[in-house]
Design a protein around this nucleic acid. Structure first.
Lengths: 210, 210
DNA sequence: GCAATAAATGAACGGTGTTCACAGAACGGT
DNA sequence: ACCGTTCTGTGAACACCGTTCATTTATTGC
C-alpha cells in the first residue's frame, strides 16, 4: 500500500534532481544558457517530461530564485550575530558582497534578471528569505540608532533600504560594468558602511575605508 | 563623381534608421524582445540585410548602449551646473534616478544586461559618456570635500564610486524587485545624499530626507 | 491477466540568430 | 552602348529555442 507514497517520493526526487542540475547549469553558464532541451538532456529525459514537473522555464527559474535567496540569507545570518553594531553592519555588508561576487550568476538570476522572477521573493513577510534578510538589516540600523550613530531624521527601515541599494549597486556594477569602479569591492563596501554611520565616533569605520 | 558620397550617405541613413527603429523596440518592449527578424520587418528589409550594417545583434545593442549613456549624460549635465555642492549632488542624484525610472528598458540595456555590452562604455577616458558622467560626480565630491563635507579619509573618486553604486542600486532594485523597497525612489535618493554628506551642518540635506 | 491510471515521449509549431550562395542594380571604363 | 566589376539585397537553409499534444509505455489496483 505504500506505493503511492513511494511514487510521490520518486516524483519529488526527480523534481529535485531537475532543480539540482538546473542550478549547476545556471551557476556555470548563467540563466540565459539554461535551456529546457539541454536540461532535459542532462537529466536524461525528454524535454516534454520537464513540463510534468514545472509549468515552464520560468517556474524553474523562480524556484532557483527562492533557493538562491535562501543561500544569501544563510550567509547573512552569521554576520548578524555580531554584537557591536558598526562591526555587525560591516560584516553584513562583506557577507552580502562576497556572496554576490562568488555566485555571480545566482545573484544575477535573483536580483537582476526579470521582475517576474523576483516579485514573489519579497512577499510572505513571515517566511520568505527576502523579508527575513531585510529584517536583519533593519535590526542592525535599529542598534545603530540606539547608539545615536545614524541620521537623526531617518528611520532604520529607510536606512536599511538605502544600504541594501548601496550593496546591490556595488555588486551589480561589478558584475555588469566590471571596468567601471576602480576600487575593489571590499573597499567600496567599507566606504559605504562608513558613509551610513553618522555621529560622534566613526573613527573605527572610517579607518577601514583606506 | 559625387555618387560615391551619396551612396555613403544612403548607407549611413539606413544604418541610422535601423538604430532608430531598434531603439523604439527596445524602449517599448525591452532588449529581450528585440529580434533581428522583427527589426528587419519593421525597416522593410530582409533579415540578412541587417548584417550588412551590423556584425550581429550585439553590435546593435552596443550602439544603443553608448547612445543611451549619452542621453543619461545629457540629463546629468544641467544638474552639474548647480553651484552649491550639496544641492548639486542632490540634483545629480534626482536626475540620474529619474532617468532610470523614466527609461527603464534603456537603463536595463546599458547597466544591467550583459557585461559584453557595457564593457566599452567606460573606456576612452576622454570622449566616452561613461567617464564623462563619472567625472561629473567626482567633481561634485571634490567641491564637497573642499567644504569639509565628506568623510575625511576617503577620496572624492572613491566617494563618487560608492555614490554611483547607491544610485544604481536604487534604480535597479526598483526596476527588478519592485516590491522590495517601500519608500519612493526620490526619498531613497535623498537619504543616500544625506548619508554621504558628512560634517558640520548636514541640516539642509537631512531635512529633505523626510 | 486486465482495465485504469500515471509517466514519458516523438513529433510538430512557431519562433530565434546567423550564414551563404545567388540575383539584381549601379557603377566606371572603354 | 556595352561590359565587367562592385556593392546591395535576398531566400533558403542550419541549428537552436520553449512549448504543446496525441500517442506510447510503464505501473498500479483489482
Amino acid at each position: 500500500m505504500g506505493s503511492a507514497e513511494r511514487k510521490e517520493r520518486q516524483r519529488a526526487e526527480l523534481r529535485e534532481q531537475i532543480l539540482r542540475v538546473a542550478r549547476d547549469m545556471v551557476m556555470k553558464e548563467g540563466f540565459g544558457a539554461l535551456s529546457m532541451r539541454k536540461l532535459a538532456d542532462a537529466v536524461e529525459y525528454a524535454p516534454a517530461t520537464l513540463y510534468l514537473h514545472f509549468e515552464n522555464r520560468d517556474a524553474i527559474a523562480r524556484e532557483l530564485c527562492v533557493r538562491g535567496f535562501q543561500e544569501l540569507l544563510a550567509v547573512l545570518e552569521p554576520a548578524a550575530a555580531c554584537e557591536e553594531p558598526v562591526e555587525r553592519l560591516s560584516r553584513l555588508a562583506d557577507a552580502y558582497v562576497t556572496f554576490g561576487l562568488k555566485q555571480p550568476e545566482t545573484y544575477r538570476l535573483v536580483f537582476m534578471e526579470d521582475p517576474k522572477l523576483s516579485a514573489d521573493l519579497f512577499q510572505d513577510k513571515q517566511e520568505g528569505a527576502g523579508p527575513k534578510s531585510f529584517a536583519v538589516l533593519v535590526r542592525a540600523f535599529e542598534s545603530l540608532k540606539a547608539q545615536g550613530l545614524t541620521l537623526d531624521a531617518t528611520t532604520p527601515v529607510r536606512l536599511a533600504e538605502v544600504f541594501w541599494a548601496g550593496l546591490h549597486g556595488i555588486v551589480s556594477l561589478k558584475l555588469t560594468c566590471s571596468g567601471f569602479q576602480g576600487a575593489p569591492a571590499e573597499a567600496l563596501t567599507q566606504t559605504l558602511v562608513a558613509s551610513m554611520v553618522h555621529g560622534t565616533k566613526p573613527a573605527k569605520a572610517a579607518r577601514r575605508t583606506r
